[in-house]
Design a protein around this nucleic acid. Structure first.
Lengths: 106, 106
DNA sequence: TTAATATGCAACCATTTGGTTGCATGTCAA
DNA sequence: TTGACATGCAACCAAATGGTTGCATATTAA
């Protein structure tokens, strides 16, 4: 569960759209997911493989179909372990920046 | 302030490292930032330009030096507008996934 | 003024990325 | 069983990405 894989997976708008789609309706098959996308099935498959590699999506074969489930845990971990760090010092960093900018034109 | 630019800027480990470095010590010059990095100054410049384009870093010329300041606002916006959405349904999505998995082997 | 320092600009290159097409495999239903 | 349907695999391609080198410009300090 490398954090880098999660960040890189989230970098592409198509993949974020896929996560959105699963967020709206969980457990969609590959074909169902493809219907909203303006690209070939194979391209969507590649994106889903990247999301799966980042552990953001879990799949399950049911007969000849493959169901896709959203796994929100990695997103949550990024929020807690990485974003939280910056959020904590948000106000101090901002005031620091403002002070410097005001010092610019005396 | 497109969210896509922020996501793509955060996708690269070098750029996250630069944000970390600024988080540790705000207002560093280009040369100061380069000292921790194992690449040429020009490569670092490009990364900083991308961070600046995503509004994650603000720069200020002071004499012949250029100071770099962290702007945590875009990170915060992503946390609130995008990550929050998934976080809210975190538990329900997880239990949903578990239910499906348990249904698998009756 | 001149030399050293800090940064900017541009061309170039290898690799990665995001997409395609073509075909193969596996499963359901008539 | 056979045809239709859902997915998998692989080769290929253009464009973006991350890095380099070489040189230009601007500012400080001796």
């Amino acid at each position: 569960m490398s954090m880098d894989a999660v960040f890189r997976a989230l970098a592409d708008p198509t993949r974020r759209q896929l996560l959105d789609s699963l967020h709206a309706r969980n457990g969609q098959t590959l074909n169902a997911l493809c219907e909203h996308m303006d690209m070939t099935r194979q391209a969507v498959t590649k994106h889903l493989a990247i999301l799966e590699g980042a552990n953001l999506v879990t799949t399950m074969r049911r007969g000849r179909e493959k169901e896709h489930y959203l796994n929100p845990v990695p997103i949550n971990e990024i929020a807690e372990r990485w974003i939280g760090k910056f959020e904590r010092h948000r106000l101090s960093a901002l005031s620091d920046l403002k002070q410097r900018l005001e010092r610019e034109e005396p």
